[in-house]
Simulated assay, not measured.
Amino acid sequence: MSQTVLYAYPGACSRVTLTALEEAGAPYLDRWIDIRADQQYSPDYIAQNRKAKVPALSVDGKTLTENPAILFYLHQSLPDAGLLPRSGDLFDDARGLSDLAWCASMLHPMVRQIRNPKKWTKGDVSGIAEDGLEKLNKEASFVEKTLSKSTWWYGEQWSIVDVYLYWVFSTAAKGAFNMEDYPALAAHAERVRARPSFQRALARERAAVTDNKLNIDASKL
C-alpha cells in the first residue's frame, strides 16, 4: 500500500493541497514544517525538498514540489475527486493546469509583495507593497467579473482553483487588500470556507497549531 505524506504549514499555500487531499478522501499523513522557526532549512527537510518551502508531497519516498504540479498529480491520480474539470478535450482540460500556474506564479508573488515586501529586496522596500497591491487589484477585478456570474470559477462546478483563489485573496486581505471592494469575491470566499473538505483541512491546521505549539493564532486561520 502506498504512503502519501504532505509537508505543510498552517495558513500557508499548502492549505490548498491539504484541501485537495481532503476533497479526494485519500489516506495521507501530514508533517508540519514550522517555517517561522526556519525548520524548512533543517537538514532533514532539505533532504526531502531542497527548495526549502511548503508544500511538498512525498509518495512512496519520492518527493514532488510546486503546488501546480502537486495538485495536477492529485487530479490525475485521483480522478473521482473532481479537483479540476474534465471535458475529454486535451486543450480545454489544460486550462485547469494553466489556472493553477496563474495562481502560483502570478498571484502568489503579488501577495508576498503585499504581506512581506522585505523578501523582495535587501534595500529600500518602499513601493514594493504598493506595486503588489496595484497588480492584485487589477487581477481581482477580473476575478470579480467572473464570479459575479457564477458560483465557482468554472461555473457551477467547484474545483481546487477556487480554493487557491480563496487563499490568494484572503491572505492578501490580512494586509492592505480590501476584500470588501469585491462583493462577489467575498461571497465566493464564504462558499469556499463552508465546503466540508475545506473545514476538515482547517481542523487539521488548527490541531497542528496546538499539537506542535506553533506561534500562530489558530482562531485567525
Rank of each mutant, 00 (worst) to 15 (best):
L84Q: 03
L84I: 00
L84W: 00
P85A: 07
P85N: 09
R86T: 13
R86V: 12
S87D: 02
G88C: 03
D89V: 14
D92W: 15
D92F: 14
D93R: 02
R95C: 02
L97C: 08
S98L: 08
S98R: 11
S98I: 11
D99N: 09
L100N: 00
L100R: 00
A101T: 15
A101S: 04
W102L: 13
A104H: 11
M106P: 02
L107E: 06
L107P: 01
L107R: 02
H108Q: 11
P109A: 11
R112C: 02
R112F: 08
R112Q: 05
Q113R: 10
Q113V: 01
Q113E: 14
R115M: 09
R115C: 10
P117C: 03
K118V: 15
W120T: 08
K122A: 07
V125Q: 04
V125R: 08
S126D: 07
G127E: 07
I128G: 00
A129N: 03
D131I: 04
E134L: 10
K135S: 11
L136I: 03
N137H: 05
K138C: 00
A140P: 05
A140E: 10
A140Y: 05
A140C: 11
F142W: 12
V143L: 09
K145N: 11
K145A: 10
T146E: 02
S148P: 02
S150Q: 08
T151Q: 06
T151L: 07
W152Y: 15
W153I: 08
W153N: 14
Y154G: 06
Y154H: 12
E156N: 07
I160Y: 01
D162C: 10
D162F: 13
D162P: 13
